[in-house]
Write a protein that binds this DNA or RNA. Structure first.
Length: 411
DNA sequence: GAGGCGTGGTG
DNA sequence: TCACCAAGCCT
């Protein structure tokens, strides 16, 4: 039987890039790193924002992006900066290998005299994978490349009702995404798909009625849009415990810190000394792991923190030592004024806040604290109250980003 | 391919 | 409270 031409409805059409671009021209988001219509994108800003946005929300990135531009206005400035300054500026944003790779990438790009303008060239740089290479090539250099991130995977899996679960479906989703990229305005198209995924084609309760691709969307047709993308769920890791040791030096109140190994969990970040973190760690034995001899006081409550692959519970021990105490090998005393420049990850800021909060909450007591009884847990063994991070640990205010400069396109 | 690798917001 | 999510990369 021959299908009558009249039965070809809008619903059978493939998704058309032009329809999405019409929507984008009207509804595009205004973002600090995004060039306005008519402006030429700055590859440095595009690259910096794409790295920061990996697995990170726009809201979280904005203040970091502004501060990075202020401290490192271009790739040469970033390349010339000491590693510690970059790690410190990144502290709190998470996934710290991104910061290490960012710095290495900046040095490579500065030495080469500029960013490569092809997917293949970009893909070779540290911290730039398939998604980011496509995004920079498309957005900064208007190359017809697909930028397949979580948003695009969601949009495409719904458009074509891809039943294969992630991550196995990734190659197929990429092929489908690449088939949609237009030769005209590929950079706008890449940003348009991401805007669509971020504002309409959301994970929960997508706003299909407003979507420029509602008609050709297979999942919408079936009413199953919220079930895509299909994915296998992974189980979370087991709880690990440990002890953290907060040492304050008499006189200036400096805190004992050390730097973690350069790679792995919280690599190259700062921390107060801690024990190992293990599922079977016993806080009652913690003083065997203390960094120095002192009158240790076990603080009530614990500090909890959830990493990607396991939750952590730290028992905090606190001690005051004499002003002339030397730091143990590989450690340092950092005075309060210097804490803001230490690359302290969130988990470790919680530890310091837990110790300082309790100390600050107490009136200056002329009588010494009672000797702690380490055999039995303190009475208040409930979870620690949620308290704001003390000002000394929080980031300093950031000035508004300078107005965007229109830069000549690099060929 | 699977697992390591942070953090803050949200329903 | 807690599971899930957010512009992934590397080994």
């Amino acid at each position: 039987m021959v299908t009558p031409a009249a039965s070809y409805s809008r619903q059978d059409a493939r998704p058309d890039a032009a329809d999405l671009l019409v929507w984008y021209d009207r509804h595009r988001r205004v973002l600090p790193w995004r060039a306005l219509p008519g402006e030429v994108p700055d590859p440095y800003r595009v690259w910096l924002s794409e790295i920061m946005l990996q697995q990170t929300t726009v809201t979280a990135v904005k203040p970091y992006f502004a501060r990075f531009l202020e401290r490192f206005p271009d790739v040469a400035a970033l390349a010339a900066a000491p590693e510690e300054a970059v790690m410190s500026a990144w502290a709190g944003l998470g996934y710290y290998s991104r910061a290490r790779n960012l710095h290495a990438c900046a040095r490579s790009v500065a030495a080469a005299g500029g960013f490569p303008d092809t997917v293949e060239g970009l893909r070779k740089l540290p911290g730039i994978g398939a998604y980011t290479a496509g995004a920079i090539a498309a957005i900064a250099f208007d190359r017809p490349a697909a930028a397949v991130d979580g948003n695009v995977e969601r949009v495409v899996s719904r458009l074509f009702a891809v039943d294969q679960p992630l991550p196995a479906a990734r190659p197929a989703l990429r092929v489908l995404a690449e088939s949609l990229v237009p030769q005209k305005r590929p950079g706008d198209f890449a940003q348009a798909v991401m805007d669509l995924g971020a504002t309409l084609c959301t994970s929960k309760r997508p706003a299909c009625a407003l979507c420029p691709w509602m008609a050709p969307c297979q999942a919408r047709k079936e009413g199953t849009q919220e079930t895509y993308p299909r994915k296998l769920k992974k189980e979370s890791g087991a709880l690990r415990r440990g002890a953290a040791f907060v040492v304050e030096r008499a006189g200036d109140g400096a805190v004992l810190l050390r730097t973690r190994p350069p790679t792995g969990l919280l690599g190259a970040m700062a921390e107060p000394p801690t024990s190992e973190w293990r599922a079977d760690y016993d806080p009652a034995q913690a003083l065997l792991d203390a960094p120095l001899d002192a009158r240790w006081k076990r603080l009530p409550g614990t500090v909890r923190h959830v990493f990607t692959h396991f939750p952590l519970e730290l028992t905090v021990f606190q001690a005051r030592v004499a002003a002339d105490t030397a730091p143990p090998e590989g450690m340092r005393f950092t005075p309060p004024a210097g804490l803001a420049d230490e690359p302290l990850p969130g988990a470790m800021k919680k530890v310091l806040a837990h110790a300082l909060e309790r100390k600050l909450a107490l009136p200056p007591a002329p009588t010494p604290d009672p000797e702690p009884d380490l055999a039995t847990p303190p009475p208040a063994e409930q979870k620690a109250r949620r308290a704001p991070i003390p000002k000394v640990l929080s980031r300093r205010p950031v000035a508004a980003a300078p107005p965007r400069k229109v830069q000549p396109r690099k060929i």
